[in-house]
């Protein structure tokens, strides 16, 4: 883990890092990665990765409309809305 990597990662995660913090962050993340690297102490070839604790199958929902319009409730505490729209700084593609 180096400075450039952490800058790229922070950008992906949309986390702001001040220049003077970079070194501390890199070193604390490196400590964690060292702990994590202990995983390499055992061989895991031909082990199936486990994504869920139980092997259940996905339940399917019937295709019914049950929701009603709750826009006012959802936007009640959001002052950055207008005429039912959420507003963000102008995006230029």
């Amino acid at each position: 883990m180096d400075k450039d990597t952490i800058i790229k990662i922070a950008d992906l995660a949309k986390i702001e890092i001040k220049q003077d913090q970079i070194n501390d962050i890199v070193s604390s993340l490196e400590k964690i990665l060292n702990l994590v690297d202990e995983m390499n102490s055992i061989n895991t070839d031909n082990v199936k990765p486990m994504a869920h604790p139980l092997n259940l199958k996905q339940e399917l929902r019937k295709d019914k409309v049950l929701e009603i319009n709750n826009r006012d409730l959802f936007q009640k505490d959001n002052k950055y809305t207008d005429n039912g729209y959420y507003k963000v700084p102008k995006i230029i593609d």
């Binding site: 990597t5 992906l12 962050i25 995983m39 055992i42 895991t44 082990v47």
Partner: peptide, 26 residues
Amino acid sequence: ILIGTYALSAGYYDAYYLKAQKIRQI
């Protein structure tokens, strides 16, 4: 968030996320 983003990012996924899921299996 930073550690997690790193563990999932291109080039590190197998070494971290996938490895961890295999340890989890074991």
